[in-house]
Amino acid sequence: MNGEVARVPLLPVVAVILGLALFSVMDGVMKAASIAVGAYAAMFWRGLTGATIMLPLWLWRRERNGGGWPALATIKVHILRGVVAACMAVLFFYGIVRTPLAEGIALSFIAPLIALYLAAVLLGEKLHRAAVSGSVLALAGVVVIGWGKFDGPADAEAVKGLAAILVSAVLYAWNLVLQRKQAMIAGPEEVAFFQALVSCLFLGVGAWWLAPVPNAVAWGLIVVSAVLSATSLMLLSWAYGRAEAQVLVPLEYTAFISAAIVGWVAFDEAVTLATLTGVLLIVAGCLHATRGAAN
């Protein structure tokens, strides 16, 4: 037992917990920015701001490592994850404008479970019985959260928000698979720079129509969120480059605590009993599925 404990990498675990806490704060800032200018516009301008902030740091790090651009295979991974992350984030921020922040984070917790199914489809991995039973338990958690939210007259905006977050969770699962692969072939500064750059370029296609120039207050929120996002990405990239995903992915659940605090302080959002019950079922289902698959 002591030997097993000793093999748990402490610094990567701490880095992931801190990175996820910063991401929760960033989610709160982006929720405010999305309310002000819309989720699409907030993500586009954040991508532009983040790429501008990270460019000098990435160039400095590149020069210290001997210069040169990343290999074509690495660029392809950067582009793929950047596009996936951009779509995921727009849907998520669209959703949390219409639902409490803690509920949005709770629903995104099904992502590690979806990742098991993606691994089965994309990588040909065997889908274990524990993954199926864990899915049922996690689905029950989603139903409990939805039932608690819509126990009464249907709210069309809340329904759209819930649907957007669930689709975002599917993309987040793909993002988790790509995150480990990207961290193994690129440094934290490179990961943060290219994710912001690709997000900006991808969303730039519709920016003329969907991304009006923010006012001063919204700009301030976007700049803060870009700094938080870049810092979080570097912390997570550093950690995932030094520890296995199966050790770090379960730490995603710590984000619920910080999200609940941010939602309560910034938006006066109470955490309901249905949300707490739902998140417990989702976490239990995901842990059962992932641990069962590991065994």
Score class of each variant (00 low, 15 high):
residue 93 F to S: 06
residue 142 V to E: 02
residue 28 G to T: 10
residue 40 Y to C: 01
residue 249 V to C: 03
residue 31 K to M: 04
residue 126 K to M: 04
residue 94 Y to H: 14
residue 189 E to H: 09
residue 42 A to Y: 11
residue 69 W to Q: 07
residue 153 P to F: 09
residue 238 W to D: 02
residue 223 V to K: 07
residue 58 W to C: 05
residue 279 V to P: 03
residue 241 G to V: 13
residue 25 V to K: 06
residue 136 V to F: 15
residue 164 A to M: 09
residue 253 Y to S: 10
residue 263 G to W: 04
residue 9 P to M: 08
residue 132 V to A: 13
residue 216 A to V: 14
residue 101 L to F: 10
residue 171 L to G: 04
residue 204 G to H: 05
residue 164 A to Y: 01
residue 22 L to N: 00
residue 70 P to Q: 11
residue 209 W to G: 00
residue 197 L to K: 11
residue 44 F to Q: 02
residue 80 L to Y: 08
residue 101 L to C: 07
residue 286 C to K: 01
residue 153 P to Y: 08
residue 55 L to N: 03
residue 84 V to T: 13
residue 31 K to L: 04
residue 82 G to Y: 13
residue 73 A to Q: 14
residue 210 L to G: 02
residue 32 A to L: 15
residue 229 S to Q: 11
residue 9 P to L: 07
residue 92 F to H: 06
residue 228 L to P: 05
residue 267 F to N: 05
residue 170 V to N: 00
residue 16 V to Y: 05
residue 137 L to N: 08
residue 292 G to C: 07
residue 155 D to G: 08
residue 117 Y to S: 13
residue 165 I to L: 07
residue 168 S to A: 15
residue 203 L to V: 12
residue 251 L to H: 06
residue 160 K to R: 14
residue 90 V to E: 11
residue 233 L to V: 12
residue 235 L to F: 12
residue 71 A to W: 01
residue 210 L to N: 02
residue 171 L to P: 06
residue 18 L to T: 14
residue 243 A to Q: 12
residue 103 E to N: 13
residue 60 W to T: 09
residue 38 G to H: 04
residue 148 G to V: 07
residue 169 A to D: 12
residue 36 A to H: 09
residue 62 R to T: 13
residue 129 R to S: 10
residue 273 L to N: 01
residue 81 R to W: 13
residue 103 E to M: 12
residue 37 V to A: 14
